[in-house]
Design a protein around this nucleic acid. Structure first.
Lengths: 159, 159
DNA sequence: GCTGAAAAGCATCGCCT
DNA sequence: AGGCGATGCTTTTCAGC
C-alpha cells in the first residue's frame, strides 16, 4: 500500500544517512553511525524508521550485466495504436512479464512506453525487438542502443 | 581498468548468491549462506571473490525520489548537430556534471543521448529542458515524461 | 531525542577434511 | 573447493538521562 511521503520529516542527519546508504548499502551500522556523528543505537533506529516509512525501499547489489552474459543493454520506445486503458494494460502486462524487460515506463502523451531491456547478443536483441514489434496493438518500435554509459548514478541527488 | 569477464567462471551457487544479493543487498552473510545451502565462511569467500572480480560492483540503498522532494522523473532524448568526438565529449561532460542527470547514455546512430533526470517540480523540469535545449551543439530535445512506472527491476535477470 | 552496558548474533580467521 | 571452532566485532535491546 502506498504511503504518504509527507508524514516523514527528514532532517539533515536523515539525509546524511540516506546519502551514505545510497553510496554503500552494505556499510555496517557502526560505520554509518560514525560517519553521521551518532552512536549506533539511534542511528539504527533512524534507519529502521526510514525503511518503515518507505523512504528506503530496499537494498540491491549492483551486478555487472556483462559478467552474467547480458552483453547488450538497450532501450525501446514503443508506440501503441490506441490509448484505451485495456490496450495499455495489456501491453504493460506483456512487457513486464518478460525477464529481459528491466524497466517499463508509461510516457506522457499517451500510448507510448519506454523500456529498458537486456539481451545476450545481437540475435537475442533482434528477437526481442521483433517480439515487441509483433505484439498486439504495437504500432512502432524505436530501439535506442546504448553504446556507452557516461553516467549511471544510483537513485537521486541528496544534498 | 576494465576486467575481462571471462576470467570469472560463475557456477550455480555464485548465481544464487548474486540473485539473493540483488534482491536484498543488506542480508547478513549467515542468512545468505543458509539460503544458498553453504556454511558462512565459504559463502563469504565467494562474495568477496565476486566483489573483487567486479561482478558485484557495489551495494546501494534504493531511495524513494518523492520522499526527498524529487516529484518528477523524466527522460530526455537529445540530438546533437555533430558526431565529432569533441562535440560528444563536451555534451557528455556538461550533462554528467548536473546532479539532476542520473543517467547519461550515448545512443547508437551517432549524436544522440538518452538521459534520465529528476526534477523538484514542473518549473524545475522546464528549466532543465530549457538548459538542455540551449546547451552548445544541441539540435533537439525530446522529453519523455514518466507518468507511471510499471516495472523497475534491479539489474539483470539471474536464472 | 541520546548514551552506555550487556547479550545475542555475525564476520572472519586458521586449520582440517 | 567446503566445514568447524574460536575470536573479536556488530547488532540490538534495555535501562537511564
Amino acid at each position: 500500500m502506498p504511503r504518504d511521503h509527507d508524514d516523514t520529516d527528514l532532517d539533515s542527519v536523515d539525509r546524511n544517512i540516506l546519502a551514505e546508504l545510497q553510496g554503500d548499502g552494505r556499510m555496517t551500522n557502526v560505520e554509518l553511525a560514525r560517519r553521521v556523528n551518532l552512536s549506533a543505537p539511534p542511528c539504527l533506529r533512524r534507519v529502521r524508521r526510514l525503511e518503515e516509512a518507505g523512504v528506503i525501499r530496499g537494498y540491491h547489489a549492483d551486478i555487472d550485466p556483462v559478467a552474467l552474459g547480458w552483453e547488450i543493454t538497450f532501450f525501446a520506445l514503443v508506440g501503441l495504436e490506441s490509448q484505451k486503458q485495456a490496450v495499455l494494460d495489456a501491453f504493460e502486462a506483456l512487457a513486464t512479464s518478460w525477464p529481459e524487460v528491466r524497466e517499463c515506463h508509461m510516457i506522457r502523451g499517451g500510448g507510448d512506453f519506454l523500456l529498458r531491456l537486456v539481451a545476450r547478443d545481437t540475435a537475442h536483441e533482434n528477437e526481442l525487438t521483433a517480439r515487441l514489434t509483433n505484439a498486439p496493438s504495437v504500432l512502432r518500435v524505436q530501439t535506442l542502443q546504448t553504446i556507452r554509459t557516461a553516467k549511471d548514478a544510483a537513485g537521486v541527488p541528496i544534498g
